[in-house]
Design a binder for these strands. Sequence first.
DNA 1: GTCTATAGAAGGATAGAC
DNA 2: GTCTATCCTTCTATAGAC
Lengths: 207, 207
Amino acid sequence: MTTTGVDGFALLDEIWRTVTPEAARRMLIAAVRAFAEKGYHATTTRDIASLAGMSPAAVYIHYRSKEELLFNISLVGHETSLALLAGIEGDDAVERLKNAVSAFAGWHAAFHTTARVVQYELSALSAEHHERVAELRRQIEQRMRSYLEDGVAEGVFDVPDVKGATLAVLSLCIDVARWYQPGGKRTPDEIGALYADLVLRMVRPAT
Amino acid sequence: MTTTGVDGFALLDEIWRTVTPEAARRMLIAAVRAFAEKGYHATTTRDIASLAGMSPAAVYIHYRSKEELLFNISLVGHETSLALLAGIEGDDAVERLKNAVSAFAGWHAAFHTTARVVQYELSALSAEHHERVAELRRQIEQRMRSYLEDGVAEGVFDVPDVKGATLAVLSLCIDVARWYQPGGKRTPDEIGALYADLVLRMVRPAT
DNA sequence: GTCTATAGAAGGATAGAC
DNA sequence: GTCTATCCTTCTATAGAC
């Protein structure tokens, strides 16, 4: 089976399990893998079809174009990570920020294949599709900012520049998708824990 | 003039001024702009030639291939940022880390056009060329780690996981190239200062 | 729905004149 | 060194059989 193994491809099934029919899902997962590895423009429709074990023409049975394939991936990927960030729980602002950073950074490691397409292929989207995902990205930013603002309001965080700190925290988590490799020393959970610790140190008052 | 203006293109001349003859430099700068904006694979040799104000065939007068153009950009870009990081001065470990982060993050903002190609087009390099720049990237990591290690040795930093913190700090600076836009609210210097402050907060002892 | 075959366009790189 | 013209390959997408 091409979508399982130690390289994290097993997790692709988890994100894309709602896509039907099965051939459309196989094609989408093949596209995610190819786009993540070589980039959207370096990937040919033949690459995708071949990875999915089908003929070059089979791509167009379920998708109108290569770009529509990318848009599907980008949209669902953004919706998934936004839902993750919006569903953070915790008793106080410290715990909520910790959980948010841990989850968001960890997601970019565990689902690095999807995350790479989500974060680094935005410019390949059509203008209309780009605007659709840009709206989701604004919501992601708002969520993360609210976790910082809560702590400032409660007086448990010391953050001189909340907008700048939000930018930095998101940036830190997103960039995990660029450098993470499944064979490395750290698991996604460990990366989440490391980053949550670093961010909490960043916002803690001097006392 | 195509290489000046408020959008940061003036700074391209600064990095590439040693490239001669002038037509080769114009072609290289055109390639940097095109690669940064659309990505290596989405850029055609005709795009590059057109931006440089020359014919499609003119690309091959000074460069053997499109990939060689990319390699030139990537090599010089890596060497420049490594030299910057290696030349950091400061009286103590705190000041050196502050200056290092400020300079490295600021470089990725000021020279975001070049930095984008440097950081996000590695996979388009040939295997041999990729190895050449990978060595430079290892040196960059070592430099940043040494600034953290110095502070730990002096007892002025509290960093439980130096390797992990190095990764995070580099990651933070590098990702500036992805999100930075010249029209934004912050200047490269301000981003450098913001990030230096955030990193120093991250490593400061609890007291 | 899936295939084979292919149309039609575009891209990297070269030939040869100037 | 630079241009015009073009070769040859590869690509996205479609046509039409099964």
